[in-house]
Design a protein around this nucleic acid. Structure first.
Lengths: 360, 360
DNA sequence: CTGAAAGCGCTTACAG
DNA sequence: CTGAAAGCGCTTACAG
């Protein structure tokens, strides 16, 4: 069977190609009767218009691109990405847009080359950009390429009105975490962040410092790189440093939190007895750890959905807008249990009463 | 600046569109000098041929599709998928093919509808199909749609020569696991598998049974659904059942293994002292657990790469072939430590000496 | 080796 | 409301 085309349908129905097209696209110019006949025939034949022909004549690819630029190892172990992808794809599908995914290592040149090529080939109609960097070159590049984009996770303060993006209240998140640690009696804490090149890490650091200052809490900052090992090494370094040691530590993601926990065990320290832990990102890892780790639940699926919806609005209506990501919620677990509660859980690996069921 | 086209380049160079096209595509029909001039100009202008125009005239989309059909929750927490995606995308990019990703829930109708639409719209040139089912309707559907595909993970026994696919030696994997447990002295084991609708689970069950029979080991089969809770509940059910209880358990994936571990803790049982555990899938969860869980390392990234390469070969040359996935390796950890080694690690949560460093 | 022309399968003014 | 025609930007026989 030869592939059906719009011309074939037209001939079968004894009408013109134009009428078929109008009928298919819900445009005026055809009678209701004709429209129904076209639609019925298309369904009967299981026929769909060719996407490339459509793309060519409409000058619209019908797809949105996304470059995941991170250490493949990190991407594979960070549940964050997959959950966000799911949110993005679901929202795009509802808007009848396909998702084109490209994974490159932590190589800015490749990400840049991908955008240039996509723009040149008009392969995608827009892109989703993540992990806003300090002095991020990507907005300017995309602007120059004429490629619509949405920047996810810009700080509220730095939200420029010239392009679409989501914003996160990093200071608010920081306050949630620091307030909690203050409540638990901590007066000296360490903050193991991700690389300072990420704008959101700068904002978090600022937020933690500000809130801690208000409480009279001392903060020891420590820059790391989101890897498990980095969390481990940070703890070792922090605890070997001269001076009072911190009684609590904030880690920039779940992987580093796990590394930190491992280090504490190695050093024979108890969590939360000797050092409490908070993760700036929740995941199954935090839930399964012993002790389970208190974490900021950022709902990556919903974040992806919001970003995707902004891009759809930009492409459909040219609407440039900024939308705040709903505030994250702190899920309190055993790793920051108050001393008296923690008695039964200080030994890493002991499960505090009631610490399991919420998972199942 | 108006968008450049091939006609524009031709005019600038004073040659015909055809020559530009030949030069661009490395085809004969142009002098080396002309070819160079074309390529140089394209690079200077940062110009790329329109993908939709190309797709239309070549009748080739330049993209490959993949539909991830699983519980979003599972997908988000199963590192397996992301790692495989990375392998797939990398291989496709090398073959100059884009990856179109669609995520639908565990809904066969949606997966089917996606294939029908992709085929009708000629949106992708081929698809990658995963999780071979018992009486899987997808091969026949794709065949009918004329959509090239590669089926990943068919059992070696059931590898039909009519379409491309990768095969896994499930029986071999089963033997690796069962042999190991036999070595450790286990004579009664439970096998908590995924749903029997998956062909690979049937094969695993058969393989475990066969190998166990050879060793005189008794196997208690138990069907579950890959979720954390399922692993937990399986353990509870298995240990409450009358008769001798198993001294070791095999879980179909890492999530169920974690659930199983939680259940053991709840029940006050020791691992591996009372019950040893093996996971039929490795991941960071297995590595971080206490005790760390012995697991079959299946290298999802490489599996994705192999499947993608088969699809590229099929699309480029029409080559239908079957390729075996290299055998998986068993990573032995504390959860199956021999009794004497395990003395220091029986208490879930205690870290066996040397159990941490390999991670970091 | 090069040029003029048809074709890929749609969409969209423009007349009727 | 309908039809004939041009156009989207490439590729590819077919003559020269």
């Amino acid at each position: 069977m030869a592939k059906e085309t719009i011309a074939g349908l037209a001939k079968r129905l004894g009408i013109s190609k134009a009428s078929v097209s109008y009928a298919l696209n819900g445009q005026p110019g055809v009678s209701e009767l004709t429209r129904r006949r076209v639609l019925d025939l298309a369904e009967e034949l299981e026929w769909y218009p060719s996407s490339s022909a459509r793309a060519l004549s409409r000058s619209r690819a019908g797809a949105v691109g996304m470059v995941l630029s991170a250490d493949p190892l990190l991407i594979g172990t960070e549940p964050y990405y997959m959950a966000m992808l799911a949110g993005i794809e679901t929202a795009l599908a509802e808007g009848d847009m396909a998702l084109m995914l490209r994974m490159v290592g932590k190589d800015p040149a490749q990400e840049r080359a991908t955008y240039e090529r996509w723009a040149g080939e008009r392969k995608v109609d827009g892109v989703l950009v993540f992990d806003h960097l300090h002095d991020d070159p990507r907005p300017a590049l995309l602007e120059r390429l004429g490629m619509p984009f949405v920047l996810h996770g810009a700080p509220e303060s730095a939200a420029p009105a010239v392009f679409s993006g989501t914003t996160t209240d990093h200071a608010g998140e920081a306050a949630t975490i620091v307030d909690h640690l203050h409540d638990r009696g901590h007066r000296r804490i360490a903050h193991v962040s991700g690389p300072h090149t990420f704008l959101h890490e700068e904002e978090r650091i600022r937020g933690v410092a500000a809130c801690a200052a208000g409480h009279g809490i001392e903060v020891v900052p420590f820059e790391a790189d989101y890897a498990l090992k980095a969390g481990h090494d940070a703890v070792v370094a922090l605890l070997q440093a001269p001076g009072d040691r911190p009684t609590a530590m904030i880690f920039g993601n779940d992987l580093m939190s796990m590394g930190g926990l491992l280090a504490l065990r190695e050093l024979g320290l108890r969590c939360p007895g000797d050092v409490a832990i908070v993760s700036w990102d929740d995941s199954l890892h935090c839930q399964l750890a012993s002790p389970a780790v208190t974490a900021l639940s950022r709902n990556p699926g919903m974040q992806g959905r919001v970003a995707a919806e902004l891009l759809l609005a930009l492409l459909d209506a040219g609407t440039i807008q900024t939308r705040p990501i709903p505030v994250s919620e702190l899920v309190v677990r055993a790793s920051t249990a108050p001393a008296w509660d923690a008695l039964g859980a200080v030994d890493a690996g002991q499960v505090p009463a009631g610490g399991i069921s919420p998972l199942l």
